[in-house]
Computed example of a mutant assay.
Amino acid sequence: MINLLPSLKFSDSGNFFLMSGPCAIEGEEMALRIAEKIVQITDKHRIPYIFKGSYRKANRSRIDSFTGIGDEKALKILSRIGREFGIPTVTDIHAAEEAEMSAAYVDVLQIPAFLCRQTDLLIAAANTGKVINIKKGQFLSSGSMKFAVDKVKDSGNEKVILTDRGNTFGYQDLIVDFRGIPEMKSFGVPVVMDCTHSLQQPNQTSGVTGGKPELIETIAKAAIAVGADGLFIETHPEPENAKSDGANMLHLTLLENLLVKLVRIRQAVT
């Protein structure tokens, strides 16, 4: 991460880095509140931190699901968070034409798992010169993600991160194969474990994705133990009232205790 984001605080600490924040930007006050709390925690424990928030949710089960507060409004909130707290920010993009627009506001562009094979999207993201975080498709092997990495690097951008978020297991569940972390690290890029989306339970008959947040700690501990460079954890002060993915987010009050445990594991295995 030192070469990818030179401004990332504590990148020499030996800790894993953290991508964390709400699933979606629901409003300025909420986003600032979450960012301030996580910055306090990560500064205290010297954990490099990247604020995460989606400016728009394009992949929804139902047409009446929350998608966002407006692209420009949400992106400006992300930009403000980056400036006020002096931290990098990351958001997802969904189409090639969104890459340049989003790059004007954030430091890292994230490619959603379902779109990780979209060549035009990967090339457009690469051409911005930003760090590109590619989420592994639930339908792909870890080994096949080398081709996604190659698309970005062959476009002239060496700044790539890969994020695992589990594999489709039947119709309504996901399972994490931790062998994928060292396999993807062999491509010469940092590898992140998405500890919240990997616990989703999609395709519920209600049209609202379920989840198992009680297992976030289990997934996170295992990921650090096998060498993950970073963790992706969506968090919210009121997950039950979150407008997107509340069923699998970590309650904000639980974050520090979890990170303390994970820092100890990191120290033990390095």
Rank of each mutant, 00 (worst) to 15 (best):
N3G: 03
N3V: 03
L4G: 12
S7E: 12
L8H: 13
L8F: 11
S13P: 14
G14D: 10
N15V: 15
F16A: 10
F17G: 12
L18M: 12
M19N: 04
S20V: 05
A24Y: 05
I25V: 14
I25P: 14
E26I: 02
E28V: 13
E28W: 15
E29Y: 12
A31V: 01
A35N: 03
K37I: 05
K37H: 05
K37Q: 08
I38T: 00
V39M: 04
Q40R: 15
T42E: 07
D43C: 05
D43F: 08
Y49S: 01
F51H: 11
F51P: 02
R56Q: 11
K57Y: 02
A58W: 08
N59S: 12
S61R: 11
I63D: 06
T67R: 15
E72C: 11
K73T: 11
K76E: 14
R83A: 03
F85A: 12
T89F: 01
E98L: 06
A99W: 05
E100S: 01
E100N: 08
A103Q: 05
V106F: 07
V108A: 15
L109D: 14
L115D: 12
R117Q: 03
D120H: 07
A124R: 01
A126K: 13
N127T: 11
N127W: 09
N127C: 07
K130W: 11
I134R: 07
K136S: 15
K136A: 15
K136M: 15
K136D: 13
G137D: 00
S144M: 04
M145P: 08
F147C: 10
A148Y: 08
K151A: 04
K159D: 14
K159W: 13
K159I: 11
V160F: 02
T163P: 10
T163V: 04
D164G: 05
Y171F: 09
L174E: 07
I175M: 13
V176T: 11
V176R: 07
R179H: 06
G180D: 06
G180E: 00
P182H: 07
M184C: 00
S186K: 01
G188D: 02
V189G: 07
P190V: 07
V192Y: 07
M193D: 06
D194V: 01
D194M: 08
D194Y: 09
C195P: 10
Q201C: 02
P202C: 07
N203G: 09
Q204N: 06
T205K: 10
S206W: 03
V208S: 08
T209L: 10
G210Q: 09
G210S: 14
I216Y: 08
I216K: 12
A220F: 03
K221A: 09
A222I: 02
I224Q: 09
V226A: 14
G227M: 10
L231I: 03
F232W: 12
H236N: 06
H236P: 10
H236E: 01
P239G: 00
E240G: 06
E240R: 12
N241Q: 14
N241D: 10
N241W: 04
A242D: 15
K243D: 01
L250P: 09
H251P: 04
L252Q: 01
L252K: 00
L254M: 14
L255W: 04
N257M: 13
L259P: 11
L259W: 00
L262A: 02
Q267N: 13
A268G: 05
